[in-house]
Amino acid sequence: MKLSDHIKPISYLKAHAAEVIRNLSAQMEPMVITQNGEAKAVIQDVKSYEQTQETMALLKILALGTRQIEEGKVQPAHDAVARLRNRSKKR
């Protein structure tokens, strides 16, 4: 995706809103909206937004796991499984 192909002024958005929405859904690529020559907003279709949010959540989980490994906050899998089994037996 070439971002420069998807930059439009706010006046374009105002005049072509329905077309912009159709294109966002069809192309599944974001559009940068400018105001007074400066980028002010990015719009995208809902499906792409949801995918972006899911990706961000997974990246946060990976970063947290990496940080925990670096800090030594890990334990062997068999110890963790044994602890969980003991917990379930006590209930």
Rank of each mutant, 00 (worst) to 15 (best):
M1A: 09
K2W: 07
L3D: 02
S4G: 03
S4I: 07
S4E: 09
D5G: 03
D5N: 08
D5Q: 10
H6R: 10
I7V: 15
K8Q: 08
K8T: 02
K8E: 00
P9C: 07
I10F: 13
I10E: 15
Y12F: 12
Y12N: 05
L13G: 00
K14T: 02
K14W: 03
K14F: 01
K14V: 01
A15Y: 03
A15V: 01
H16T: 05
A17I: 08
A17K: 14
A17T: 09
A17C: 12
A18F: 09
A18N: 10
A18V: 13
V20Q: 09
I21K: 10
N23G: 02
L24H: 09
L24G: 04
A26N: 13
Q27G: 03
M28P: 04
M28V: 08
M28R: 10
E29Y: 10
P30M: 15
M31T: 11
M31V: 15
M31L: 10
V32H: 01
I33N: 03
I33E: 15
I33T: 04
I33F: 02
T34Q: 14
T34E: 14
T34F: 08
T34K: 12
Q35S: 13
Q35M: 11
Q35R: 11
Q35L: 11
N36V: 00
G37N: 07
E38Y: 11
E38M: 13
A39L: 02
A39P: 07
K40P: 06
A41Q: 14
V42Q: 05
Q44S: 06
D45F: 05
D45P: 01
D45N: 04
K47I: 11
K47W: 06
S48K: 08
Y49P: 01
Y49N: 02
E50K: 07
Q51T: 00
Q51Y: 05
T52E: 13
Q53M: 11
T55Y: 08
T55W: 12
T55C: 07
M56L: 15
M56R: 05
A57P: 04
A57F: 03
A57E: 04
A57D: 06
L58G: 13
L58Q: 14
L59M: 14
I61R: 12
I61S: 08
I61T: 09
A63T: 09
A63E: 08
A63P: 05
G65L: 13
G65A: 11
G65T: 04
G65N: 14
T66W: 11
R67L: 15
R67G: 14
R67N: 15
Q68S: 00
I69H: 09
E70G: 02
E71D: 12
G72F: 03
G72T: 11
G72S: 06
K73L: 09
K73S: 07
V74H: 11
V74R: 02
A77S: 10
A77L: 13
H78K: 15
H78P: 00
D79F: 07
D79Q: 15
D79M: 12
A80C: 01
A80H: 14
A82G: 03
A82P: 04
R85L: 09
N86L: 12
R87V: 01
S88N: 04
K89R: 06
K89A: 04
K89S: 03
K90R: 13
K90L: 10
R91M: 10
R91E: 14
